[in-house]
Design a protein around this nucleic acid. Structure first.
Lengths: 252, 252
DNA sequence: CGGGCAGTTGAAAGTTGTCAATAGTAGTGG
DNA sequence: CCACTACTATTGACAACTTTCAACTGCCCG
C-alpha cells in the first residue's frame, strides 16, 4: 500500500478522523469498550449454576482439540490462548483479563490451548444457560466483539509492525488510558512515567508478539540504552517517558 | 517454544490428538464449521426489514472510524476488512464470504475498513431487530465465533509462518475439504489437481499475508519452478499437487 | 501500436532468527 | 549466609529471510 503519511491527531482514538483522502489515517490499536448494561450477566454469574475454579500460574485449563465442555469467564488474573504448529512453533493469539470469556467452540473442540499466565480465578459456565436468555447472549456477543477487535489489532501488529513497534505496543497495553484518547500523539506531554509489571516471561512475550526471545530482549535493551525505559527487574519495566514509547508503536 | 516435532497425522483436523506430551501437536488452520439450525435467521433475512445492496469490486462499504450504522451480511462475493497504520501500511485482517456478518461495533465506530474484493451483494441489517430474538442472537454468536477462529488461524500465520508457508496456506484456502479432515498429511494421495481462481491482486494478497508484493510473487515463482503449481494466468493458479502444497503450509 | 498497469526479477540492504557463550536471578541445602 | 544448581535473560557473531529499490516483462485496452 502506498498511502501518504498522515502524521498524527489524537491517536485516532474514537477521534473523528480526517475526510480529505481516500484512506484516512486511522488507529490500529485497541479501542475503548463502550459501557453497556450487563446486569443480567451479573445476576447470572452470581447464580449457583456458575462454578468457580482457581488455577495456578502456568496451569493449562484446556488443550487445543480437547472436547469443548465449558465456557469460562475470567474473574481475576490473566489467561493466554495459544496455538501450536506441528514443529512446536507457538503463537499466543490472545490474552484475556477480568470479565473476558473464553472456551467457546463451534466444532465441539477447543481451537486453542488456554493457560493461566498468573494465578487466576475463572467461573465455569454452562453454555445452555446462556443460550436461553437474550440478555446473556447479548453480553456474550459484546465479549466476542471485544475479542474480535483485539484480534484485528493483533493481526496488524503481527503482520505489519517491526520488532520495536511490537514491543512498544506491548508495553503500552499496560498503560491505562494511553495510546488512547488522552494521549495526543506527537505533542509534548509533561514527562510522564509508568511502571509496568509484567506477568509474562520473555518467551511468552515473544510468542505473543511473533518474535524470538532474543529479539524481545534486544529491543528492550535498546529502549533502555536510549533511555525510554528502565528495567528495574526482569518483570518490572519503567516507561520513563510514556509518550515516547507510545510514539514507537507505529500507530501514529 | 521447544516442543519436540510431531510429524503428522490427519492434519490435526478434528482429529483426536496425542496425549503423550505436555503440548500436543495441533492444527492451526481453520476448522470446519459445525452445521447449525439457522432457520430463524433465514426467516429474518427474507423479511422486508433487510435491505439489499450491490457493490462493485473495490468499492469501500465503510471506512475505519466511520460511525457504525449498520450490520451487514455477505450474500455473494467477497469482502475484505483491513486496517491502516499512520504511514500507510495496510493489514487485511479478514476476508469474508457468503453468510458472514460484518459491521459490528462496540464503540459506535467501525474498527476496520470494509472493501469489496469482487462485485458483491450484501444485506443491510438493523442491529435492533437482531437484539430482540434469541435465535438471531445465537446465529450472530456463531458467526462471530467463526470469525474468531479464523482470526486465531490468521494470527498463527502472521506471527509464525514463513513466506512460503503463508502463500501455501493462502492457496489451500481455496481447496474445499483439504488441509482438512479428508487430507491425510504426509501420506500419498493420488496426484490431485485443483484450479484456484484468485479474486485478489498481488497487493491484496500481500497485505493479507503480511508480506510485500515482491515476496508473494517470488514465492509463487518458486512454487512454479518446483512444479507444485502452474500459473495459467495471473489470477488462475493450478495446484498441480494439492497434497504437496498442503504440506508446505506449516500445519503438519 | 503505445500507454498504463500489474506482476516479475535481480541485486543489495536491512531486519530478524539462530547458535553459542555469558550474565543474572531465584531457590535449595549445607 | 554462602555455595550450588537450574533457570531465565542478555549479548555477540553470523546466517537466513524478507524488504527495498529499480529495471524489466507482459498484458489489457484504447
Amino acid at each position: 500500500m502506498f498511502v501518504e503519511k498522515k502524521t498524527s491527531f489524537a491517536e485516532g482514538f474514537a477521534a473523528g478522523g480526517f475526510d480529505d483522502g481516500r484512506h484516512r489515517s486511522r488507529y490500529a490499536g485497541t479501542r475503548l469498550r463502550a459501557p453497556a448494561d450487563d446486569s443480567a450477566w451479573d445476576h447470572y454469574r452470581a447464580s449457583p449454576r456458575a462454578r468457580f475454579d482457581r488455577h495456578d500460574a502456568h496451569a493449562v485449563l484446556f488443550h487445543e482439540d480437547d472436547t469443548a465442555s465449558h465456557l469460562y469467564e475470567v474473574v481475576s488474573g490473566q489467561i493466554m490462548l495459544y496455538r501450536l504448529l506441528g514443529d512446536g512453533r507457538r503463537q499466543v493469539v490472545d490474552i484475556l483479563g477480568e470479565g473476558d470469556l473464553f472456551g467457546h467452540s463451534l466444532t465441539g473442540l477447543y481451537d486453542c490451548t488456554a493457560e493461566a499466565l498468573t494465578s487466576a480465578e475463572v467461573r465455569v459456565l454452562d453454555r445452555r444457560d446462556i443460550d436461553q436468555s437474550i440478555d446473556l447472549l447479548a453480553h456474550v456477543n459484546r465479549c466476542l466483539l471485544t475479542r474480535i477487535e483485539a484480534l484485528h489489532s493483533h493481526a496488524v501488529l503481527l503482520g505489519r509492525k517491526s520488532a520495536t513497534e511490537r514491543v512498544a505496543s506491548f508495553l503500552m497495553r499496560f498503560v491505562p488510558n494511553r495510546g488512547v484518547v488522552g494521549c495526543t500523539g506527537p505533542e509534548r506531554h509533561n514527562t510522564d512515567t509508568e511502571l509496568v509489571v509484567l506477568k509474562m516471561t520473555r518467551q511468552e512475550i515473544a510468542d505473543f508478539l511473533g518474535l524470538t526471545i532474543e529479539t524481545v530482549s534486544r529491543v528492550l535493551s535498546d529502549l533502555k540504552r536510549r533511555g525510554f525505559i528502565a528495567i528495574e527487574r526482569n518483570d518490572r519495566i519503567r516507561l520513563v517517558d510514556v509518550c515516547r514509547v507510545c510514539k514507537m508503536t507505529g500507530i501514529h
